[in-house]
Structure formats: C-alpha cells, structure tokens
Amino acid sequence: MRRIDVIGIGLGIFIAGGVVYGFFKAVGLDSVDAGIWSQVILVGGLVGWLLTYLFRAVTQNMTYNQQLKDYEDAVLQKRLEEMTPEELAALQAEVEQEKRALKQTKDEG
C-alpha cells in the first residue's frame, strides 16, 4: 500500500467520523452523546476490520500468499511445458515410484 493510500484512508475515516457525529447531532443527541456514539461506531468498525485481518492472516488468504501461490504455479507450469517427452516420462516414472514407496511405508506401519 502506498503512502498516499494510507493518507486517503485516514482522511476518509476522519471525514466519516465527522459525518456520523453530524448525523447523531441532527437526530437530536447532545454533543457529548453524539461524540460517544460516533466513537463507538469507529471502534466497532476498527475491531471488525481487525478480526477480518486476523482471519485472513490465520487462513493465509492474504494477497501476498495468493500472489506467491500463483507465481509458483506459473513457474511449474512453464517448466512442464519446456520439458521434452522423455523428461516427462522420466518424471512420471519417478512420481509413480515415490507413490509406491509411500504406499509401502503406510502398509508396513
């Protein structure tokens, strides 16, 4: 995120807080109550955003993780496309051998 984005988001939240405060004043609350309720909404929104962030961090569903996975998939796909048929056959034989060895280990254990 760029510095200007952070400044814009901060300014937007500041303005939204003023709008919510003005709304509560227009509804008929006095200045103190309007300030308290606008702060309650601000803190509630902040806690909600924090919970969604923590959920995405724990499930590794964040932008960086998705970009890294997409990059790794693209690199593997490109490597597969560049392999000759003989190399592909050798790779497939190696995978099958490892599957058999893994199955044998599971059966013994």
Score class of each variant (00 low, 15 high):
10 G>R: 02
10 G>P: 00
11 L>G: 09
11 L>R: 04
12 G>D: 02
14 F>A: 01
15 I>P: 00
16 A>C: 04
16 A>P: 05
16 A>I: 01
17 G>C: 00
17 G>M: 12
17 G>R: 04
18 G>C: 01
18 G>A: 01
18 G>L: 05
20 V>E: 04
20 V>L: 11
21 Y>T: 03
21 Y>I: 06
22 G>E: 08
22 G>Y: 04
23 F>H: 03
25 K>D: 04
25 K>R: 13
26 A>F: 05
26 A>K: 09
26 A>V: 03
27 V>P: 05
27 V>Y: 10
28 G>S: 06
31 S>T: 13
31 S>I: 07
32 V>Y: 15
32 V>H: 10
33 D>R: 11
34 A>Y: 02
34 A>I: 02
35 G>I: 00
35 G>D: 02
36 I>E: 08
38 S>N: 04
39 Q>S: 15
40 V>W: 12
40 V>I: 15
40 V>P: 09
42 L>R: 11
42 L>G: 09
43 V>F: 12
44 G>L: 11
44 G>Y: 08
45 G>C: 14
45 G>H: 08
45 G>L: 13
46 L>A: 12
47 V>M: 10
47 V>I: 14
48 G>H: 07
49 W>Q: 11
51 L>T: 09
51 L>S: 11
51 L>M: 07
51 L>Q: 12
53 Y>S: 15
53 Y>K: 12
53 Y>H: 14
54 L>E: 05
56 R>W: 00
59 T>I: 10
60 Q>E: 14
60 Q>R: 15
61 N>S: 15
61 N>P: 00
62 M>A: 12
63 T>V: 06
64 Y>H: 10
65 N>I: 11
66 Q>S: 05
66 Q>L: 09
68 L>E: 11
68 L>N: 11
69 K>W: 06
69 K>S: 03
75 V>L: 13
75 V>H: 11
76 L>Y: 09
76 L>N: 14
77 Q>T: 14
77 Q>A: 15
78 K>I: 02
78 K>Q: 15
78 K>R: 15
78 K>G: 13
79 R>A: 10
79 R>C: 02
79 R>P: 06
